[in-house]
Nucleic acid binder design. Structure first.
Length: 98
DNA sequence: TTGTGTTTATGACGGA
DNA sequence: TCCGTCATAAACACAA
């Protein structure tokens, strides 16, 4: 239901932390806090979140999470300024990386 | 076994 | 019409 694409929301979630890194489970929580859509609907959107993390080059894995599962997810260093300026377009992100 | 991550496929949609 | 973007589904491997 939210009009913003997953890539934008995931970027906002990760960039909302002080160290710009977040574990998958916390990205879930951030989204559920962001919109009731993710709170109320059955979890096909979690599949989409994982798909976006893998597919979009702007998301890079950091160290493995010690307590929980998986890795810390961060944004590509070349995209940080772009995102801070509010440009979440996939085209711009890819251009910044290449 | 469960959660996490990768990958492929498919369809809708809008712009050039 | 072709191309890029986005969403959704689903199969699979892997680690805790």
């Amino acid at each position: 239901k939210p009009d913003e694409p997953y890539m934008t929301l995931i970027v906002k979630a990760i960039m909302s932390t002080a160290d710009h890194r977040m574990v998958l489970a916390d990205i879930y929580l951030w989204l559920m806090d962001y919109s009731p859509y993710y709170r109320l609907t059955k979890s096909s959107w979690k599949n989409s979140v994982r798909h976006n993390l893998s597919v979009n080059e702007c998301f890079v894995k950091s160290e493995r999470a010690r307590n929980g599962r998986g890795f810390f997810w961060t944004v590509h260093p070349a995209c940080v300024q772009l995102f801070q300026d509010g440009d979440y377009s996939r085209r711009s992100a890819r251009a910044a990386i290449q």
